[in-house]
Amino acid sequence: MRLIAENLGGERGGETVFSGIGFALEKGQALVVTGPNGVGKSTLLRVIAGLLPAAEGRVRIEGGPEAFPSVASACHYLGHQNAMKPALSVAENLRFWRDFSGADFLGVEEALETVGLDGIGHLPFGYLSTGQRRRAAIAKLLVSRRPLWLLDEPTAGLDKASEGRFGEVMTNHCRDGGIIIAATHLPLGIEGAKELRMTG
């Protein structure tokens, strides 16, 4: 499976934020997008996911499984928000996303254990701290299988131990033939990741 972006350009409110970005990622590779605030890292991720129309160029996926014909169907998008409901318990949230996204991967308990949140699945999501919420959102990546992960500042609010654990999760995902694109300011600890520096 390959993810190819050609001459990609994005705009926000009619103003060009970036242009001429191209890369090709084979399975098992990770791309870390870095750069100062406002340079368009989040916009790039949203353009890749297909949530924003590309101002120019295009993104496509080649040779993936038949279940994932497009980038949107092949990706897990983890944005700034965690996409979890504060009124529902952590386990209910995860169970919903597993049922909605399909392609079951880890069980809810197992996913929570992987991010170090075992034993709190019954708590309402709204009771968790910022870092715990982020970890629960990361567990959401694990309950259903997607080859492509688009992560927007995934480690915001995580402590050192959780960062290390998440680094392992991402390395494992690459080893299983997944692709990761992450926008970040902090080192993520993915072995052998490429870097894309956006300078504006």
Binding site: S70, S73, Y77, H80, Q81, A83, M84, F100, S101, G102
Partner: peptide, 16 residues
């Protein structure tokens, strides 16, 4: 939209 779920619902267009 506020908690980001809407993005994921829109992205799920191919499945649902």
């Amino acid at each position: 939209r506020e908690d980001g779920s809407l993005d994921l619902l829109v992205l799920g267009n191919d499945r649902h």
